[in-house]
Amino acid sequence: MVQAFCDWLSNTPISLKIQTIVWIIPAVQTVHILSVSIVMASMAMLDLRLIGITGKRQPISSMVDRFVPWVWRVLLILAATGAILIIGEPGRELLNWAFRTKMAMVATVSLITLAVQQMNKRDATFWENRRIAAAAVGVVSLLLWVAIVTAGRWIAYV
């Protein structure tokens, strides 16, 4: 069924357009990677703060307010550029297990980040008062982001 969908999608006018203009895919991938770097650097800062390694001059709450809104905005750019890449090469992405793993991890880490933000909104000292939970969330989130980038690069190889 996914195969049939890929066949249909790759024959749509928009997909054919992306396939014939050679610079579109590398250009969109470049925007995608630059967006990943914004999300990744922001989340690394926040996660390291949650773990308790860096940035202790700032309360966790102000780091959440500083970085998480950027993450949501840039995730929209990632979704848009990612969608263009899928339309251009549906089979390369949708039938690829590295891609599927990546999407599952993106969904998971988004939910975790949403939870971090919501708890912080309800109580600005929530994470300061729960050091172990905060550290655990930080470690899981950081590992997921590293795994997401890794899976993203491996789409080209598996």
């Binding site: 914004i38 999300v39 990744m40 650097a41 980038v149 890794t150 491996w154």
Partner: peptide, 16 residues
């Protein structure tokens, strides 16, 4: 992958 991960951190942090 290591190259990409580290470049992402270089670019993201320097951009801040």
């Amino acid at each position: 992958t290591i190259h990409v991960l580290s470049i992402i951190l270089v670019v993201g942090s320097i951009a801040m």
